[in-house]
């Protein structure tokens, strides 16, 4: 069985720029509003005098194929390549599982 791949998101750094969504829409020609990944916003609200909740989270949809054709050519999935904050990492699940606990605010998608 082929090695399983996934995407690790260091969501502490996601700035909500939506490049992943648009890269996916353009890679596959998806209709406006549909994509293999969608960015959600959490906040802003104030937690205490100095602290705010204000973050973003990319969530993968049923349309995501992990850019299998690109991967076959040795390219990164389009969302990962274009992520402006460089907070998405593509790799084998086996490797990414080891990385997910390296620091807080990471999430691993097995797709």
């Amino acid at each position: 069985m082929a090695e399983k791949s996934g995407i690790l998101i260091d969501y502490d750094w996601c700035t909500g720029c939506h490049s992943c969504e648009m890269a996916c829409q353009m890679e596959f020609g998806f209709p406006v509003g549909q994509s293999g990944v969608k960015v959600f916003q959490v906040g802003p609200w104030q937690i205490d005098e100095r602290k705010w909740q204000y973050s973003f989270m990319p969530v993968f949809t049923d349309m995501c194929t992990l850019c299998a054709e690109r991967a076959a050519k040795g390219k990164l999935p389009s969302c990962v390549q274009h992520c402006q904050a460089d907070c998405m990492k593509y790799g084998s699940l086996e490797d990414l599982v080891k990385e997910v606990s390296s620091h807080n605010k990471q999430v691993l998608y097995a797709i």
Binding site: M22, A23, M26, C83
Partner: peptide, 24 residues
Amino acid sequence: VKVEGDPENPFNKGRLCVRCLDLP
């Protein structure tokens, strides 16, 4: 038909914003 960031360009290192991605 498509615009991608150039990973070999040190300025943006393959990254791109929505306006260029949507340039077509």
